[in-house]
Simulated scan of single mutants.
Amino acid sequence: MMRKVLLTACAWLVALVVLAPYVQMLLTALKPHEELFASPPGYLPESWQFGNFLEVWRVAPIWEYLRNTVLIAGLSTVLAVAVALPAAYYTARRRFRGRRMFLLLVLVTQMFAPTALVIGIHREMLALGLIDTYAALILVNAAFNLAFSTWILHAYFSSIPVELEEAAWLDGCGTLQALLRVTLPLAVPGVVTAVIFTFITAWNEFVVALTLTSTPETQPLTVGITAFIGQYEVQWQYLFAASLIAIVPVVALFAYIERFLVSGLTAGSVK
């Protein structure tokens, strides 16, 4: 009993530590401009300005930034997972010369951060004529998330017995049908993990987007909200309000997709 109480207390403590910055962001977003620089500053707003969450849509093209972010993150996720699926399936089911080296090279690509390659990425996109376009951000985000997606899907495909596919072949299914009807449903947890990781990484990406875009028509929200950071003043109430707005779609995605993750964990356990 005591152990359970201690674990619960520790869990609540960790949750409070994790949520504390978001609470501070919310309270700051609800303060009027004059309270932000008051001395001494108060923790709670004296005048609650819920209108800041509506005003931020007027002072900056938040809707346009949000639309760009959803489009870039969504297409990056689709592209990365679509390419990773056949690569992971082939490496899990085929034993070919250089297989281990191939998987190692895929893993090594995760060591290169976009920040270290941003100059080369900019020159390449400039040569391709893709500067300040959706395509540039979609290709870069998909490329940098492809390695993780391939590895996580490779692990899930490897854990699924090949005998299940062989049984499907005996029933008349081809290789593609066996993959789509038997193997892929059992690999749902891996696919969901790859989708969540890729989407959130692309959603939060900043450095490459800042380098490759220059207009609100193509800039994601992570770059767009920097407009509230001026040379002499930072509009903290709008900056934090926009940041909280940016968090909502990711939380909604995870809440929606969680049931597929849980159901995928038990897929195939009952005939």
Rank of each mutant, 00 (worst) to 15 (best):
V118P: 01
N52Q: 11
A168N: 13
T213P: 07
P220C: 12
P40G: 12
Y238F: 11
I257L: 11
L139I: 13
R181H: 12
K4I: 10
S39N: 11
Y89M: 03
E34I: 14
F37V: 15
A142Y: 03
P41Q: 06
A84I: 05
T193I: 11
A38H: 11
F157N: 02
W236S: 05
E124P: 09
W63K: 01
L85V: 14
S269K: 07
Y256D: 06
L146I: 08
T8E: 10
S263A: 14
T226K: 00
I225F: 06
T193E: 07
L107M: 15
V192A: 06
V106D: 02
F197E: 09
W169G: 07
T109C: 13
A194E: 09
L244C: 01
T218G: 05
E233K: 09
V70H: 02
L180A: 10
P249N: 10
F199A: 00
T222E: 08
V208T: 13
T213A: 04
A9T: 01
H122T: 12
R93H: 02
L210Y: 12
E205Y: 04
T175V: 14
P189D: 08
L184Q: 03
L184T: 07
L176A: 12
L128C: 08
L66V: 05
P161F: 10
C173Y: 15
A88R: 02
A194S: 15
G51E: 12
E258D: 14
E34S: 15
L107W: 14
T133W: 11
L71P: 03
I247P: 04
W151L: 15
V78N: 01
S159Y: 13
N145Q: 11
S243W: 04
A29L: 05
Y238V: 06
I160F: 01
T183S: 15
Y43V: 14
A136I: 02
M101H: 11
V250K: 05
V223C: 03
V262A: 08
L221W: 04
V191S: 02
S149W: 00
N204Y: 00
P220M: 11
G264Y: 02
S76L: 10
A88Y: 01
T201E: 00
I131M: 09
L137Y: 06
S159I: 13
E124T: 14
A87Q: 05
I131Y: 10
T8W: 09
V81N: 10
A15N: 06
R94I: 12
S214C: 07
I229A: 13
T266W: 02
A209E: 04
L85Q: 03
I119N: 01
N68Q: 03
R3H: 08
I72A: 08
T150S: 14
W57T: 02
E205L: 06
Q49V: 14
I119Q: 04
S39R: 12
M111W: 07
